[in-house]
């Protein structure tokens, strides 16, 4: 396909010089937007799964700190009887401190602060437990106890992710449009530049599709060239962003990674953009030529 001889001196016109750069830029942007979307998607579903099967029981500190342990044991004995629960674990003070440190600073280390007790509950796979019912049940037994199933947190997160995903989709659509527009413009220019040669081809008996094929395969190979370059630029950028994300506190951010499937989707983008360029060039030429004799 690339070795195909061209009857038109297409490689010497603006189309050839201008298009690969633009496509490189488009593909670069498209890959970043797409990568963002994929990461969010993967992260959201990972969070979603993790959160759906866990609950956190919070027992507020009592007036009398001596009673805290008793209250905890009361709650644990209820949890132990529930068949939906796979296992539960009381957070040690050390872990609690660690969780609080980013907010409270080293001050959290002083044991003077009355801290709630937290119990991590993991449900059996597929099991459903109504957090509100459990919350009421426990609160009746041990006042100041609440159960959090992270639903509100999850809802907000999902809404945020959906918004960002919508934006990314918009960016992708915009990039596709810009690519189409660019190819239409450069193809029209090319048709103008090569008007004489195209007329000769016509007079010799060439079909419109013959001429269009030359423009289309040219646009495709230029698209691939530019797209590959865009990919080459995007990969280090993504790796850099990934590295920076890893440097941030991993307690706050879930793990951000792209799997092999994601990478191959991203690597396919130059091809997709090239195909868009090819089809666009073909349609543009066919349309323009149909007005010629």
């Amino acid at each position: 396909m690339f070795a195909r001889r061209s009857d038109l001196p297409l490689d010497k016109d603006a189309l050839s010089r201008f298009l690969p750069w633009l496509i490189a830029f488009m593909v670069f942007l498209a890959i970043l937007a797409m990568a963002g979307m994929l990461v969010l998607n993967a992260t959201a579903s990972r969070w979603d799964q993790g959160i759906r099967s866990t609950l956190t029981v919070q027992i507020m500190p009592a007036e009398d700190p001596a009673k805290d342990d008793e209250r905890l044991q009361a709650v644990l004995s209820v949890l132990a009887q529930l068949p939906e629960i796979d296992r539960y674990e009381t957070l040690t003070d050390d872990r609690l401190m660690k969780l609080l440190e980013p907010w409270l600073g080293p001050a959290a280390g002083s044991r003077d602060l009355p801290l709630p007790r937290l119990v991590d509950v993991e449900l059996k796979t597929g099991a459903v437990l109504n957090a509100e019912v459990l919350s009421r049940q426990l609160a009746a037994l041990v006042p100041g106890t609440s159960v959090d199933d992270h639903r509100i947190w999850l809802k907000r997160l999902v809404r945020l992710i959906q918004t960002v995903e919508g934006l990314a989709t918009l960016v992708l659509a915009f990039i596709a449009l810009a690519t189409v527009g660019t190819v239409v413009f450069t193809t029209r220019t090319g048709l103008d530049i090569h008007r004489e040669a195209i007329e000769i081809l016509h007079l010799i008996g060439a079909q419109d599709s013959y001429v269009a094929g030359q423009f289309a395969s040219r646009a495709f190979s230029l698209g691939l060239k530019g797209g590959f370059f865009g990919l080459l630029l995007a990969v280090p950028t993504l790796l850099g962003i990934g590295y920076l994300a890893q440097q941030m506190d991993s307690n706050l951010l879930p793990e951000i990674t792209l799997g092999p499937v994601h990478w191959s989707v991203l690597a396919g983008l130059p091809l997709v953009v090239s195909l868009i360029a090819m089809v666009t060039a073909r349609i543009t030429v066919m349309k323009t030529l149909s007005r010629m004799l």
Binding site: R5, A197, I200, L203
Partner: peptide, 15 residues
């Protein structure tokens, strides 16, 4: 009305 970027051979082969 030959195609100037093609060789004599390619011009004749075109049809």
């Amino acid at each position: 009305r030959l195609l100037n970027h093609l060789s004599a051979f390619d011009n004749v082969a075109l049809p």
